[in-house]
Design a protein around this nucleic acid. Structure first.
Lengths: 334, 334
DNA sequence: CTGAAAGCGCTAACAT
DNA sequence: ATGTTAGCGCTTTCAG
């Protein structure tokens, strides 16, 4: 195990009997090189197993080739898939991924943001789930959000949540539901899935019922809270539209424990449709988000704003928001 | 939106009317400083919202404060939880996480490894699932693996898989199973869960039956393959020990489709016990891995090998492998 | 207590 | 076609 230090440009140069500039030229394939030196240098590089120090390159070029991704937690399948998709798209452009899990905590996000700036990432993608941080305004690197309203100048890429909410609710009604309950993390004005749900119910003349269970409540409290709420609604509820598939699973579990037959006595539809949840609960009806497309778009927009090393200032059509279409995946629970 | 360039040490120095060296001293709280300058500098830093360029610091200190984590894919709950736990432990030590998803592909892992070295990460944690890469021998940065035999000099932290295999199989037999099938990704000598399964069956005088379904086979092929195998075994199988909870879910789905009552006609036990799968299938009996502890240990061992900036060469008791105990979580499927 | 200057590993003028 | 040199932004001797 060679504990010698990492070889540098100088080591390669010495071995090939040329100057560091020449080695650099070979490395970056720039300027005129004789075939002979090119080969000598390449061989020296190979022999030493030399790999350019990206840190030094970054200092000089003022680009690190790194993008920071802030998510609540990749332990959840949706964000895990987002992380994977984002990493793939970044890799396609020669970019690396610095991962940050904020757990919905503003202080965590603030710390991460500060660290990303110190590390001079070329860009930031945020899908955090806490209230917007003012710090994003003071930041110089381009940013893009995934399913998050952050600031007017920060593009937001997401699924068409409102359409998803409508689609889900409509589906439940078509299946015969008379009183669908909406299960969500937080209920508020800008909850688009909730808006879609309410819109469809309003059109049908049905009073909405919204049950909330905070996103980051640890188990088993969160399930308990949901079960308790459903117990209280036992008389009226005959269907559940959950804002994510995990919450839908909790509703299914409630049905199992209370002996309610699904879908006859309780219809359940979820949201997200991640591969993991499709495997875990293949029978669950859900609204599938186009995760790969969302991430592809987000990275494309970000890359555009980062610009290539040379390309001074790209056209930048100032994308404000992109909404991608969702799909209903019909299962056995509705 | 200020598009001015990022402030540097010089900007702070100018504003505070001191030299860059003094600012650096304030920043790192080193050497003697008069209270007056200390305050003047601090104020300038604040006013400019100055954040030290970590790239420059890294070049000088030859430490990036970054650790590379290579996993098959954080889209799967187990690896997602690993990523989160690792990030938490790293953050505790002021380290950042560069995430790499290899999808079980050696070429992907090789590329990632190369990139990590070029970026001069301080250490590498690998939980990739393909065959060992020879490249790990030529690498200068300390490495640790999670649930992976890589090389003699690379410590491996993992759950006690063999005990888990025994525990699961024992449990099935105790519940009355007479012919438990083992469902896994790849069957081989060093598959410790399989070894545990076989050991218990041997002691009971039962012939093992191992069904494989490659890890990275895309859905729905993978499920199809499992269903087909179970159909072929329909006459004999009365229990399934799956190597992970997702595969257990597939077995449950098979039972649902074929009208087999669980647990009476088919007992199912999984492996991993991630929070997500506990939520998705609260009734599933499973062998729970101590993910947080595994990651805490892995990071501790790695941090030890990285050493503090000063601490020349730590004691390094040359940890070779650590096995952490698993737990049986009894549910309704056995 | 503070400043000047060297240098981390690399690239990009500018020479030759 | 190749070498010399000046930084990238920071920390750290070494002077003063």
């Amino acid at each position: 195990m060679e504990r010698s230090r990492e070889p540098r440009l100088g080591d390669v140069a010495a071995r090939a009997g040329v100057s560091v500039a020449t080695v650099s030229r070979v490395l970056n394939n720039r300027g005129y090189l004789s075939q002979a030196t090119r080969e000598r240098v390449s061989q020296a590089i190979e022999e030493l197993d030399y790999r350019p120090n990206q840190v030094a390159r970054s200092l000089l070029s003022r680009r690190t080739g790194t993008v920071g991704l802030i998510l609540p937690t990749v332990a959840l399948p949706f964000f895990g898939e987002v992380a994977v998709a984002v990493e793939n798209e970044l890799a396609e452009r020669g970019l690396r991924l610095l991962l940050c899990n904020s757990f919905g905590r503003a202080d965590r996000e603030r710390e991460h943001l500060d660290l990303l700036v110190r590390n001079r990432v070329d860009g930031i993608i945020s899908g955090a789930h806490n209230d917007p941080l003012a710090e994003y305004d003071t930041i110089r690197q381009p940013a893009v959000t995934i399913d998050r309203e952050l600031a007017p100048h920060i593009p937001n890429v997401r699924a068409d949540n409102e359409a998803g909410g409508r689609l889900a609710t409509q589906h439940l009604l078509e299946r015969g539901a008379r009183r669908p309950v909406f299960l969500t993390s937080r209920s508020h004005e800008r909850n688009l899935r909730e808006r879609g749900y309410c819109a469809v119910l309003a059109a049908a003349g049905i009073e909405p019922i919204v049950v909330t269970a905070e996103f980051h409540t640890p188990e088993p409290e969160r399930s308990q809270r949901v079960h308790g709420a459903l117990d209280a609604l036992a008389e009226v509820v005959d269907a559940v539209f959950a804002t994510d598939d995990l919450l839908a699973a909790t509703a299914l579990e409630w049905a199992a424990l209370r002996g309610r037959r699904v879908p006859d006595e309780l219809r359940v539809i979820g949201f997200d449709g991640t591969a993991t949840m499709r495997s875990a609960l293949p029978g669950l009806t859900t609204i599938q988000q186009p995760i790969a497309e969302i991430c592809r778009t987000a990275v494309a927009v970000l890359a555009e704003r980062i610009g290539t090393p040379d390309a001074a200032a790209a056209s930048s059509d100032a994308v404000a928001a992109v909404e991608l279409p969702v799909t209903l995946v019909a299962g056995r629970t509705t």
